[in-house]
Every structure is written in structure tokens, then in C-alpha cells.
Amino acid sequence: MKECMGLQAYLTDAMDVSEKGRFEAHLADCSDCRAAVEEDRAMSAALSGIPKVNAPAGFTAAVMREVSARRRSRLAWSAYGVAVVLVAALAGMILGGNVGAVAGDAAVLIQSLSDFGASLYTAVHNISAVLFGALPLGPGTPLAAGAVFFILCFVFYKTVFEFSAGRR
């Protein structure tokens, strides 16, 4: 059976009204195209008549059980991440010698973290000095080190969060 130009476009609604009119006029004269159109329509009708299946009993309940489990897991990991950051921050303040700042001024809190960062930096500096003899210690160092510490805490928290999300 030969296939005339435009058959596919006609059967996939890819023709505008005038093209469609012309092709339908052609159909009146072309038995091959008429047969092809009839066959395609019969196939389409048969495909649309394929029986549907239902979801198994308890499908929704099973999905929702898993959803609840994932949600609990996510909440647990989030809480864990928050706890880790808080503990790390508190540890920083304790090590920085400013525990009282917790209940006080936020600026003091930040200063404490900066001090802790500075302590860490100093430690790293001393170790590095021994190992490599090359880390500069300037006036902005405590603040920068505190910021780095905060960023590290944040990265750790996000990593934990993403890990927990990946398990969901």
C-alpha cells in the first residue's frame, strides 16, 4: 500500500483547516489513503479500548505509611542537625570563655564565636607554623575565623539535611 504525502500530518492533527480540506478531498480519490486512515482509526479505537487496571487494595495506605515514615525521618535528621549546630556553637562559647554571653547580648555571642574561631585559628596557625611555618595572623583574623566556623557549621548542617533527604 503506497502512502501519500500528508497522511501522517492528517492523522496526527498537524494540518490547518485548509490543508485538512485538501487532504480530505484527496481521500475521496485515493483508496490507499482511505484504507490507511481507516486502519489507523481502528487501531486508535482499539488502543483506547484497552482495559484499565485498578491500584491494588491498600495502595494509598501503603504510600501514606511511607510518607509518614519519611517525614519522621526528615524531622529527626533536621532536629539532629540543629542540635549539632547548637552544641558546636555552645562548645565554641565555652571554649572561648564567654558562657555568660549566651543569655546576654547577641553581639557578645558573636564575639564569643569569633574568639573561639580565633582560638581555632591560633591552633591551626601554630600547627601550621610547625609544619609549614607560613600562616599570617592579622587584626581581622578572629572575626574571619569566627565566620569560617559558622560557615562550617552551616555546611555541616546542610550536609546532614541533604543526607537525610536522600534517605527519604
Partner: peptide, 9 residues
């Protein structure tokens, strides 16, 4: 889930 389970399955 109720709305789309049948089409998806």
C-alpha cells in the same frame, strides 16, 4: 495519591 493512583499505575 487517590486522584492519580489509577492513571499512574
Amino acid at each position: 495519591v487517590n486522584r492519580y493512583q489509577k492513571p499512574i499505575i
